[in-house]
Design a protein around this nucleic acid. Structure first.
Lengths: 144, 144
DNA sequence: GCTTGACTCTGTAGCTATTACGGACTTTAC
DNA sequence: GTAAAGTCCGTAATAGCTACAGAGTCAAGC
């Protein structure tokens, strides 16, 4: 019935250490413990872990997932709120895609120049030294 | 001639504190100092900052940029190495784009279901709880 | 000469979302 | 009975910054 943490990890798709982390940051409630102190997860808690895991797969931040979980726990209807979070997140993903595509295009351009050019002069290094086509520099958020 | 750190920041596109960070991690050499200890950047160093900034805009990691700078500093030709770094990085960007597009498609799917469905049942939460495919059983379970 | 405000200095801590470690304990398998 | 595997906790590391605090410095105005 109850699952140990490694079983919950396997069942939910969350890494074992990540589950402890989620507990530490309050995304997961402290689970019951066995007599010897091992965590014992009930099915509902494993489901909650899966909820988080799927949210992460869709790129939601932990804070977004925290909000979604609150709405989920709240029996009052809040479909509009959920929808708003999802749409905001989707817009953010599209921004990141655009940014990465901009990078890819620019990179393809300088690589193509380099491959076609003479070997004594690296156009890629030139591009980094000289050209400044790129505008926005919120690169950190572009990591998947 | 020499620039103070805020001027170098403005000229290079790097945030002021980021410049100090780059120095700390060895991406920038320790600059000359004024009598009172202020950093004084020579044009070549500002250029190096701009090089880093452009590399970041193209999504290169600091370690990749470190390699590119080594190749740049090395007067021996190494266009092939530069090209390899750039191509590897480009492939990585394409992977990230694919991943984000996968997320976006999936998210669009669940959002569309939610928007098209009745207001009393949030299919987005369903999607997160279950396998990503909302079944009729799930809808039936939905409370008013 | 003095004050005010803007700038810079160092060192450290915070951020996101994990992952990895060390050393102690428990459970399981043979 | 012993050895291997699992679990515990707390802490530190990762990338790439950003944000302080508290001290010192510089230029302008009066």
């Amino acid at each position: 019935m109850h699952m140990k943490i490694s079983e919950a990890a396997a069942a939910s798709g969350c890494h074992l250490e990540t589950i402890r982390y989620y507990e530490r940051v309050g995304l997961m409630p402290p689970p019951a413990r066995t007599a010897s102190g091992y965590r014992a997860y009930r099915p509902a808690e494993v489901e909650r872990l899966r909820f988080i895991s799927r949210g992460r797969e869709l790129g939601f931040s932990l804070e977004e997932i925290r909000s979604l979980l609150r709405l989920e726990d709240d029996s009052k209807m809040s479909c509009g709120d959920v929808d708003a979070i999802a749409r905001t997140h989707l817009a953010d993903i599209h921004l990141r895609i655009d940014e990465l595509q901009r990078m890819a295009m620019e990179l393809e351009r300088v690589i193509a120049q380099c491959a076609g050019g003479e070997r004594e002069c690296c156009t890629i290094l030139h591009a980094l030294r000289d050209t400044g086509i790129v505008s926005k520099r919120d690169v950190a958020r572009c990591r998947v």
